[in-house]
Amino acid sequence: MASIDFVTLEVADPEAAARFYADAFGLDPSQVRLRASDAPTTGFRGFTLSLVVSQPGNVDALFRAALDAGATPLKPAAKSLWGYGGVVRAPDGTIWQIATSAKKDTGLAGREVDEIVLLLGVEDVKASRQFYVERGLTVGKSFGGKYVEFATGPGTVKLSLYKRRALAKVAGVPADGTGSHRLVISGTTGPFSDPDGFVWEAAAATG
């Protein structure tokens, strides 16, 4: 099954970014990596990363830790029809959603992350879906031209496609943006660039 092994965020200061992600989320560097880049970028970079957790208390714990580590709140953690979640922007500019589908806590709150999801904001969901299917990814869920979720193996970063403007709205930012996505995706497929300019590399070439 084609999948994402890890993503690499291109940041101005990798050491500072590494401290933030360790302090805020305790992320496993095998899934989210960092590399130095000064590529020009403005506004919305066209993607978000989501931390999916088991209960609202974990959302709150991660949200507070992110703010304490220097993140900017974009949407406060709150209840919604689908569950509970909030959005922050890391100091390096990456937008993170922290969310759970659970409505109530079932245990002590912690910062355990169950799943990392990369949501790509694309102009044409159906065309991008077909592009990825032709490169070996398997569709797990699909809602017409609005949203696609690809099936991935355990321990890998999940990939989803969303309309760019809709994703920006979810993130709480304007949809406009130019320049580099500041993101490189590494997996069992690639290398290539998708129709929206997201760059994939072969995992063996960067791991």
Rank of each mutant, 00 (worst) to 15 (best):
residue 138 T to K: 15
residue 181 H to E: 08
residue 35 R to K: 15
residue 69 A to Y: 14
residue 207 G to K: 15
residue 195 P to M: 11
residue 197 G to Q: 09
residue 98 I to A: 07
residue 125 V to L: 05
residue 106 T to V: 11
residue 60 D to M: 04
residue 69 A to E: 10
residue 49 L to N: 03
residue 80 S to I: 06
residue 93 G to L: 06
residue 105 D to I: 13
residue 83 G to E: 07
residue 84 Y to M: 07
residue 52 V to L: 13
residue 31 Q to W: 04
residue 1 M to Y: 03
residue 190 G to Q: 03
residue 101 S to A: 09
residue 152 T to G: 13
residue 178 T to L: 12
residue 132 Y to N: 02
residue 2 A to E: 10
residue 5 D to T: 05
residue 29 P to F: 06
residue 114 D to I: 08
residue 83 G to N: 06
residue 106 T to W: 03
residue 10 E to Q: 15
residue 46 G to F: 00
residue 69 A to C: 09
residue 137 L to S: 01
residue 100 T to A: 04
residue 123 E to Y: 00
residue 52 V to C: 03
residue 114 D to P: 00
residue 75 K to C: 00
residue 62 L to T: 06
residue 44 F to I: 06
residue 44 F to R: 09
residue 127 A to S: 11
residue 162 Y to D: 02
residue 176 D to Y: 05
residue 51 L to F: 14
residue 37 S to C: 04
residue 43 G to Y: 04
residue 173 V to F: 05
residue 41 T to D: 02
residue 44 F to C: 03
residue 20 F to M: 10
residue 60 D to C: 02
residue 23 D to Q: 15
residue 1 M to H: 10
residue 119 L to Y: 10
residue 101 S to V: 08
residue 144 G to M: 04
residue 169 K to F: 02
residue 177 G to A: 11
residue 21 Y to P: 04
residue 104 K to W: 01
residue 87 V to E: 08
residue 121 G to I: 04
residue 121 G to M: 07
residue 188 T to N: 06
residue 80 S to E: 09
residue 181 H to Q: 12
residue 74 L to G: 04
residue 102 A to Q: 15
residue 3 S to Y: 15
residue 123 E to K: 13
residue 180 S to W: 09
residue 142 S to D: 14
residue 191 P to Q: 09
residue 94 T to M: 09
residue 11 V to R: 10
residue 174 P to G: 09
residue 21 Y to C: 05
residue 105 D to H: 11
residue 127 A to M: 08
residue 84 Y to F: 09
residue 173 V to W: 05
residue 140 G to A: 07
residue 137 L to H: 03
residue 128 S to W: 04
residue 172 G to H: 03
residue 25 F to D: 01
residue 10 E to L: 15
residue 189 T to G: 01
residue 61 A to T: 14
residue 98 I to M: 09
residue 128 S to K: 08
residue 177 G to V: 10
